[in-house]
């Protein structure tokens, strides 16, 4: 394949905009398009496309006919993943797909099979693997700095974005809630670090009457125990229920047979900014992790660099997420993997 590729980003929401901006900086990219099919978003999308010198499509099928495009990057709500991904693959396009891969295991498998069938490259955007501190933690474990990993904790928590109360995140059937949409970052990362498969998951989430955000149907807070096959265990806490204004926060610790490592995004933020009645810590990454992720996929497509996140990784992360959700919905009943049935119908 030639050194240059064209890219079509689908969706002009927060993630679509982030990805489009990142693609614009990738040296292999010589053509950029943006697709927005929702009329109410069109003005905003026009603005973004203009800024990035990207061709704007309002019809996805038309964009797929564009022979300048080799890669389609899908940043749409999860329930749309399967249709959009498979259509792109059928058109012979390589696909970068936002996480989670899907909400049903059957859908996930169909996407993976379609990529194989049409011989296109495919990656799910598990961006945490490209965050420098998490990538370094993985490296430290790999070189034996803490010995064999035994027990880990991972937190990921924030307030629920007010603009999202009526959005799809809040709908149980559309996003799977916090135990699927947010915690999947950590499930995937932990699987990567432990280099092991999950044996059993047990999770708790506040029942509807105890929920902090009563307006939404999705699970808004959850705690998860994960047992790996070789005996490692992990705890995951994920939340959208922190008070409004609470900053997005993450924490990770991994204990092994030879030591312990911590990654805490509050204590590692190099910048604090205080103004009247506000204070925030700012993380300033040496390089935007979304850019690193997108550059990686570009290098996979152009140069055949091995994928850091395989399709099976994405499938397994979804399986853990669904097991956690199932366990929480069943009041904390342990759930064994592999999952035998769908959790979100």
């Amino acid at each position: 394949m030639s050194e240059k590729v064209g890219v079509g980003v689908v969706g002009s929401g927060f993630m679509g905009t982030t990805h489009a901006n990142a693609w614009r900086r990738v040296p292999y990219v010589n053509y950029l398009a943006l697709c927005e099919t929702l009329p109410q978003r069109l003005e905003k999308a026009k603005e973004i496309a203009f800024k990035l010198n990207a061709k704007l499509y309002t019809d996805y099928d038309k964009m797929l006919e564009d022979s300048n495009i080799h890669i389609v990057d899908i940043c749409l709500p999860t329930p749309l993943h399967k249709t959009f991904a498979i259509k792109a693959m059928e058109a012979g396009k390589h696909v970068l797909l936002e996480k989670p891969i899907a909400l049903r295991l059957k859908d996930a498998r169909e996407i993976i099979d379609a990529a194989k069938k049409h011989g296109v490259k495919f990656m799910v955007a598990h961006v945490l693997r490209f965050f420098p501190e998490y990538a370094r933690a993985k490296y430290l474990v790999e070189v034996g700095a803490i010995g064999e990993p035994r027990i880990a904790r991972a937190y990921r928590y924030s307030s629920f974005p007010a603009w999202s109360v009526k959005g799809w995140y809040g709908e149980h059937r559309l996003s799977g809630g916090v135990l699927v949409d947010l915690a999947i970052h950590d499930y995937d990362f932990l699987r990567w670090v432990f280099m092991d498969e999950v044996d059993r998951v047990c999770a708790l989430a506040p029942p509807p009457e105890k929920k902090v955000i009563k307006e939404i149907t999705a699970v808004d807070h959850g705690i998860v125990l994960i047992k790996f096959r070789k005996g490692g265990i992990a705890y995951v806490m994920a939340s959208w229920s922190y008070p409004q204004g609470y900053p997005f926060s993450t924490y990770l610790e991994i204990v092994g047979t030879k030591g312990i490592l911590h990654v805490d995004n509050k204590s590692t933020a190099p910048l604090g900014v205080a103004k009247p009645n506000s204070y925030e810590r700012q993380q300033v990454y040496p390089e935007d992790p979304y850019y690193l992720e997108i550059l990686h996929f570009a290098e996979h497509v152009v140069k055949g660099v091995p994928l850091r996140v395989t399709a099976e990784d994405a499938y397994k992360a979804l399986e853990i997420a669904l097991a956690a959700l199932k366990s929480a919905l069943e009041g904390g009943a342990p759930v064994n993997l592999p999952l035998k049935e769908e959790v979100i119908p």
């Binding site: 312990i260 911590h262 190099p270």
Partner: peptide, 12 residues
């Protein structure tokens, strides 16, 4: 500005 906060703490 705490320039070198970007660290993983490791005890072994």
């Amino acid at each position: 500005l705490e320039s070198f906060n970007q660290q993983i703490s490791l005890a072994s």
